[in-house]
Design a protein around this nucleic acid. Sequence first.
DNA 1: CTGAAAGCGCTAACAA
DNA 2: TTGTTAGCGCTTTCAG
Lengths: 335, 335
Amino acid sequence: VVSASLKDVAALAGVSVGTVSNVLNRPDRVAAPTLARVRAAIDELGFVPNAQARTLRSNRTHVLGLVVPDISNPFFTDVARGVEDAAMEAGYSVILCNTDEKAAREDRYLSILESQKVSGIIITPARRTLRPLTRLLENGVAVTLLDSPASRARVCSVSVDHATGGRLAADHAAVLGHANVAWIAGPREIPQVAAREKGLTTFARTHAMSVASLPTTSMSAAAGEAAMRRALSARFTATAVICANDLLALGAMRALRDAGLRVPDDISVIGYDDIDFAASAAVPLTSVRQPRYELGHAAAELVISEARDPNAHEHRHVDFQPTLVVRESTGAAPR
Amino acid sequence: VVSASLKDVAALAGVSVGTVSNVLNRPDRVAAPTLARVRAAIDELGFVPNAQARTLRSNRTHVLGLVVPDISNPFFTDVARGVEDAAMEAGYSVILCNTDEKAAREDRYLSILESQKVSGIIITPARRTLRPLTRLLENGVAVTLLDSPASRARVCSVSVDHATGGRLAADHAAVLGHANVAWIAGPREIPQVAAREKGLTTFARTHAMSVASLPTTSMSAAAGEAAMRRALSARFTATAVICANDLLALGAMRALRDAGLRVPDDISVIGYDDIDFAASAAVPLTSVRQPRYELGHAAAELVISEARDPNAHEHRHVDFQPTLVVRESTGAAPR
DNA sequence: CTGAAAGCGCTAACAA
DNA sequence: TTGTTAGCGCTTTCAG
């Protein structure tokens, strides 16, 4: 069996292919009776237009590429849902591309997306440059950057104000009376993390708060646990621990518990991201929330708007504000 | 700017388009010097073949559809990674479709996938029937079912032996001396959950273990916490709690902790899925592991193999075995 | 081994 | 309002 084509529909309805095409694309240009007849034929044959052929001729696909470092990270999963929903609302579909932060994988995927003639790409690039996207941009593919500090002159972007996020965490600790905090930092090469640290330390400098930085090599729970354990084994005077993400915080809480310290009575813990598991941790975690779904949704809207009308389009930069979600892992500083 | 076409390459290399096509698809049929010349031209122009046009003629895409109920669920996230990696290895890309278990969304996506002429679909259907896939199947689209009990006569499938999973959990509890266990059940309509329960109760019947079933309306941590709280407020004699998934287990542990019970000293807890957070919970969770990534990888391999050679293909059913991962949340029954 | 030419399903002029 | 027709970029016979 082979699926019905526009020609088959035309034959069955007793009209020309041009008319069927009009029924599909400009129904207003078609007389009512003809319209009805053609639509009946379409239903009868279960005709679904071939998107490839349509593209070939009209040079417009309804496909987007979403390129992220790691879809198993709950942050990107929720972003992906936002992208997908916005895309579906606009009649677009989404090709998912996972780079694992590997430049080679990214290149491979960009080439596939080019070959698929996607009309837009939403990307958190593996490098800090738009270089690999040059040819796509030249060919008129709409690109929106997702939470990336790469140059924004030629593209739209959506991002979160991570400096504010860092400040929010510090401010919350200050209000609770914590004057000595530890910062479980994550790798400093990650730009989002660097921004959070900046917000935190800037606040601390102007509020008589001392910050002990505990770097880690990854953003995992294991890394957080190890860092906390190491810190506890030396003299440790902080009464609050602020972490670069929730996984680090969950790990840190495990180390604290093993050391016999109670959260929040002995020590407060603050995370970042507000992943779903933050709420269901043994001690529900206070965290800085990023609007992940909204981030993805906005990115898709931007890229679709550019794809639809490249000429009228002006590049925009949407900056989301993080919010503090207070749960049980933070309390007043012990005296 | 518009991207280079095969014709441009042909002109630059001084050969015909047919020869360029051969360089792309059957390089062995081309003389070495010509090959070199054409490849140089390809590089110089940065030529990337147009997949749409290729499809139109050859009627073969290199695109798969992945249709899942909920990509925010870590289970499906990891499955998706498996699919994606297997697809990439074989030169395919993946369109991601999230149904939210809504029939209407599923229909919409299936129509998009048909229109995109994907060569294969991996799906956990929203209904228990293949009906919505009929036309796709008739048109020769390869379909593989993902952990679904829908009819398997006409398609490949991959699944996990959930009855064995239930038995593994029960057996582990029995070995530790637990004779009274509670089962936090989740919604019974979910077939995977029903199978787990069956494995559990079958084991219990033949091993003098009593099972108190605590149904919930969802699979969330909140539901697990509520169920546990409710159970504790009545007389509660179980020394181990087995949960239909890890989220329920994490919620249950929170309720236990609030009630002043220690895990595993006073009561043991077993989860299901072994999501990443199971390991980083406050008390690392003993859980029944499903090979999620492998499931996705295998599904993609099956569907690609069918897509590549539909005639030589025979439908296969790959059944994965779950394994028990023992962590700190289980211990000997208190006496 | 290479070239010429037909045609995949559709859209977009243009003509009627 | 509808029909006719020329391609979109590529693959694939079939000749040479």
